[in-house]
């Protein structure tokens, strides 16, 4: 038996030795494991949130005498000692950084798992 014939024989036998495996509910089990598809409304959710926020802001502005309180509060802000502002900025920065580190760590552990 020459090389090619032998090779063909072996390949044929290998293919014959792998019979079709009946589904027997396998596909149904896989489909049960799939994550639920996103609903159509989910796509609109960020737009709805932004729209509602804008509407609420506009209402607040109108109902608060043209936003006079904003001017008052901004004036108050100018009177706060500089040290307080620096401390507040530093604390905010550290808080954001801690949040970022936590998010990165949980993401990397999720990817590793």
């Amino acid at each position: 038996m020459n090389e090619q014939v032998e090779q063909d024989w072996l390949d044929r036998k290998l293919q014959e030795a792998a019979p079709y495996i009946e589904d027997d509910g396998f596909t149904a089990r896989v489909l049960q494991q799939l994550p639920a598809p996103r609903q159509a409304g989910q796509f609109l959710r960020p737009f709805i949130l932004v729209g509602m926020s804008a509407l609420a802001s506009a209402l607040t502005y109108v109902l608060s005498d043209g936003g006079r309180f904003i001017l008052v509060e901004m004036f108050r802000l100018t009177t706060i000692p500089t040290l307080w502002v620096v401390a507040f900025a530093l604390a905010s920065g550290m808080l954001v950084m801690a949040g970022g580190i936590f998010a990165a760590m949980s993401k990397s552990s999720h990817i590793q798992s």
């Binding site: 079709y20 495996i21 009946e22 589904d23 396998f26 596909t27 896989v30 489909l31 799939l34």
Partner: peptide, 10 residues
Amino acid sequence: FGELVRRHQS
């Protein structure tokens, strides 16, 4: 996707 699974499961 179910059809893809059916085709390739075996």
